[in-house]
């Protein structure tokens, strides 16, 4: 039954994609817009296949995903440390709140000129921008999660004379998991945005520069179909991660534990 529902969802989605595709194609065929602005669907698909076969887009995608994973990992660790500190100590709470107030409104791209001065133009600069855009919303989410845990849980832990790490592992993390998951989701979305914009500015270091660079390169050589094929890959990865990773993770944890519906 459940499988059926899931299958139906995909059918609906495919149906709508087909409809949108037909509308797109009819606009392209109407000849109202230059193909340099509005390429036809088969041009876009052709260009996508070409860059898959040549391996170009695969290489760039792997490069981007690698950067994202690295930076998300670093971001999650930093966010965990900061929010645990702010829950356990009043002094740190003030510090972390001040840090968030200062850094959260700053878009990573606005920091770009400074980051180039500090770190140069390599991949470490991109990682820095992603970590910056991931950490602050995640700290907000995690510390809200920790704070929403009923105090009695923590007192229970103290009663059992659990150490800091045991409290974190057995009480704080499981009890705030829905917030953690929401934080990771927001982090993932913001990481993508930061990554693509940073890559478009930096260009290739060592010949390969990620999906943002791929799109930029297509732009400067006026390959509009190529720009769309880059966008399609970004959308596909977004859908895959949402459906395969986050939904599965939710099912295996918070839904199974009965913490959310």
């Amino acid at each position: 039954m459940k499988n059926n529902l899931l299958g139906k969802r995909y059918l609906v989605r495919i149906f709508w994609i087909l409809i949108l595709g037909i509308i797109w194609e009819s606009i392209a065929l109407s000849g109202r817009f230059s193909p340099l602005i509005f390429p036809s669907v088969q041009n876009v698909i052709e260009s996508l296949f070409k860059s898959i076969i040549s391996g170009e887009i695969i290489g760039e995608t792997l490069y981007s995903l690698n950067l994202i994973c690295k930076s998300l990992f670093i971001g999650i660790i930093i966010a965990m440390v900061l929010s645990i500190l702010s829950v356990r100590s009043k002094v740190f709470e003030g510090l972390v709140e001040t840090l968030i107030a200062i850094a959260h409104p700053l878009p990573g791209i606005a920091l770009l000129p400074l980051i180039i001065l500090w770190l140069g133009t390599g991949s470490s600069a991109i990682v820095f921008i992603i970590v910056h855009s991931v950490v602050w919303p995640m700290v907000l989410n995690l510390s809200t999660g920790f704070k929403s845990i009923p105090n009695i849980y923590k007192q229970l832990g103290d009663n059992y004379e659990l150490g800091l790490f045991e409290i974190i592992r057995h009480i704080l993390i499981p009890a705030s998991f829905p917030y953690f998951l929401a934080g990771v989701k927001i982090g993932w979305a913001r990481a993508w945005r930061a990554l693509i914009s940073a890559e478009m500015v930096f260009g290739a270091a060592g010949g390969i520069g990620g999906l943002g660079w791929f799109i930029f390169k297509k732009r400067v050589f006026m390959d509009t179909a190529g720009i769309y094929s880059g966008l399609i890959v970004i959308v596909l990865i977004g859908i895959l991660v949402e459906d395969m990773l986050f939904n599965k993770l939710e099912k295996a944890t918070v839904k199974k534990w009965g913490m959310s519906i």
């Binding site: 180039i116 140069g120 133009t121 290739a204 010949g207």
Partner: peptide, 23 residues
């Protein structure tokens, strides 16, 4: 030399070069 290229606007490129670092 394509693998060594970094895309920068002229003023940014000048600042990066005068910084005498990786550019």
């Amino acid at each position: 030399l394509d693998d060594l290229l970094v895309t920068m606007k002229h003023p940014d490129g000048m600042n990066a070069l005068l910084g005498r670092k990786d550019i």
